Every structure is written in C-alpha cells, then in structure tokens.
Simulated scan of single mutants.
Amino acid sequence: MLSAIQIIKTIILITTGSCGIILNSWIVAVHLSHRKKGVSLGDCDQIVLIMGVTNVLLQGLLTFSGIIENFELYEHFTKEFIFVIDMFFLFLTFLWIWLTAWLAICYCLRLVNISHRFFIGLKKRISSGITQLLLGTAVILGIINIPIFWTLNIKAKQNTTSTLPVNFIISDSDIKYMSFTAAFGCCLPTLITSLCMGLSLMSLLKHVQRMKQNHSQSWSGKMKTLARACMTIFLLMALNLFFFLTIFHIILSKFKIDSNGNTLIFCIIMASPVGQVLILLFGNSKLRSDLLKTCF
C-alpha cells in the first residue's frame, strides 16, 4: 500500500516527467525539422536545441531516479550503477547552467551595440564556432567530473532519510574538490550570465532614456526584444541557481534530509527541466507560434 507521500511523488513523477520529456522533445524536433528543410540555425537556436536535448536526458534521468527513490527499488541495482547515474546527473546539471551562460552571451552580443574591437571579434568567433564551443564545454565538464569517481566513497543506502539512492562518505578533501567543481560548473557561468544580463539591461535603459528625450511613448521592436531577452536570461539564471543550490545543499548536508524537506526537494528537482522549457517558450515568440500551430 502506497503512503500519502509516495502517492504525491508518483503524481509529480507522472506530471513533470511527461510534460518535461514531451515539451523538450518537441523543441528538439522543431529545430531538427528546420535543419532538415535547409534552414540555417542561428547561434541562439543551436544553443536552445542542445538545451532541449540536455533537458530530455535530465528529465528522463530524474524520472528514473525518482522511481527508484519513491518505490525503494535500490536492491534491484548495484550501488556502483546508482553512483554513475548520480554523477551523470551532476554533469548534466553543470552543462545545463553553462548552456544558459552561452545563451546569455549570444543574446548580449546580438542585442547590445558595442563598437569595441574585442566584442566585435568575440561575436565573429562565437558565430563561426558555436558548435565547437558547446562541444568543448561538454568535454571540459566531463573531464572535471571524472575524478569524482575516485574522490567519493559510496555505500548502499541503509536508511530512508537520504534524498538519493546511495549514501556518500564525504571527507573534507572531497568537499574542497566538489567546491572547485561547483565553482567552475555553477559559479563561473552564473557570473558570466549576470554580466551579460547587466549589459543587456544597460542597453535597455539607454533605449528608454532615448525614448524619454524624444518624447516617444511607444516601445520599438528592438526594445521589446531586449526586454524579453533580459527577462528570459534572468529567469533562466534564477532557476539554474535555485536548482543547483538545492543540489549543493543535499551534498553539504551529506544527503540526510527530513521527510518534509525530502518531498520539497524532490518537487524542485523534478520540476526544474519543465520550468526551463516554459521559460524558453516565454522568451522565444517563434517557438510559441510553432507550438500553437502544432496544437491547433
């Protein structure tokens, strides 16, 4: 007989799992269909495509892990297998945050008028090598996460207070190493995202100032695009930071959370990929129109 908490978690698993996988798969399918038709994808579209793929993998992984955790199926899997799943989850989380940083950079370079030669050169390099940049980011994050296999000791789960299927024995040196990976995987891209968002906001404020000087009350198309881009990047950054802080809180607490906190954290983690795809739909009018055409 399922408990009330298990029923709640099952509903969350079904809702977030189906919505997250369907919506993100749809985003991937739309961009791939455009490429098949010979339409060249821009920098931002390529990043959104990889975001969709990452979210499909992340949502599928979260749903799989959630089923194991909710129905206590640990004995059917070895602790090494569960450990690999959790490490792959950390890799996808870091990649998720870095993709937001690259998207913020592309938005900033596209929308902000900066005549300095450095920014002009940077824009050309990113435009011509976005695929290599994304691939390089994934490779570097993979290399950084590999040593975790040797820094953490694991044992089978023996209590019900842990939020993940295995317990980790974490030493002070492990915390230092994981702090480094957190700094590179989360803090650095979040700082980059914040900088880009700040530059975009400054450009938006300059446009508003010009409007006041010209006594114009109507928003130009570029101003609307700037405002929507700023809001999109802010929401993505806030979601990513909140998501990662939740994960890092689990790590620092050595995966021992009370039952109420466990359920809340379960909801936050499971809903995060869905939240990201909704933010992307909010910030991309073309995607929204394609979705409406598909549904109706």
Rank of each mutant, 00 (worst) to 15 (best):
K79N: 04
F248R: 08
G60S: 04
R125V: 15
P189T: 06
L188G: 03
F94K: 07
L57I: 03
K286P: 00
S171G: 12
S25H: 06
G185M: 05
L49I: 00
Q276V: 09
R210Y: 10
S18W: 03
I67E: 06
N159G: 07
L62D: 10
I169G: 03
F94T: 03
F248S: 09
G185F: 01
L122T: 02
T163R: 10
K124H: 14
L141N: 08
T131C: 02
L292N: 00
D172M: 05
N145T: 13
Q209L: 10
W102L: 11
W150Y: 15
T163G: 14
I169D: 15
C108Y: 08
S40H: 12
I50P: 05
I247C: 09
D45Y: 01
C187P: 04
L90C: 07
L287T: 05
N262Y: 11
D45H: 06
I251N: 12
F234K: 15
G60M: 02
L135S: 11
N214K: 10
N159H: 05
G52K: 04
S179T: 13
V84I: 08
F242S: 15
K124D: 14
F296D: 03
L41Y: 01
L90D: 13
V53M: 01
L291M: 04
I146S: 04
I130V: 12
L152M: 07
F248W: 13
T225P: 04
W96N: 15
I21P: 04
L245D: 05
C295V: 13
M270G: 01
I126F: 02
I148T: 15
T151G: 00
T137I: 07
L90R: 10
V139S: 11
M1R: 01
F71Q: 02
G38E: 00
G198E: 04
S127F: 05
S127M: 12
